[in-house]
Design a protein around this nucleic acid. Structure first.
Length: 110
DNA sequence: GAGGTGACGACCC
DNA sequence: TGGGTCGCCACCT
């Protein structure tokens, strides 16, 4: 791995999330080998606004499929974006979460 | 240089 | 089954 930092790694994985799919902070953290640092993933997302190209942070939710990031988007922006991609969102929670769940450790495995 | 913070997760009761 | 607490590690002040 080159000079890639933890943030860059998180961004890289998040940008690989296909539309209509979502993943969790822990899944990304685990894929990066820092599952214990799930917070770091979320923290990195906080700075995703400065990342280039922009990171689809709206496709990243917590382990419960809850739109925790929505609170930071500042409105229903996150839910609107997810629904626009085909992800059903109800009560700030992703419907059929396990179905639309995109695990980098599996999809990007090998 | 040290302390506090945080978009989470897992364990314990 | 649900709520509360601790741990984690990088970034900011």
């Amino acid at each position: 791995m080159p000079d890639y930092n933890f943030y860059d790694n998180v961004y890289d994985v998040a940008r690989q999330i296909p539309a209509g799919r979502v993943t969790s902070y822990g899944a990304i953290a685990s894929y990066l080998g820092t599952k214990g640092s799930s917070r770091m993933v979320g923290y990195a997302m906080q700075a995703c606004g400065s990342a280039q190209p922009p990171v689809p942070a709206h496709r990243v939710v917590n382990r419960q499929g809850l739109l925790t990031a929505k609170f930071h988007f500042g409105g229903d922006t996150m839910q609107q974006l997810l629904e626009a991609e085909g992800v059903k969102v109800k009560d700030d929670q992703v419907q059929d979460f396990k179905t639309v769940f995109w695990d980098p450790a599996v999809e990007l495995a090998l």
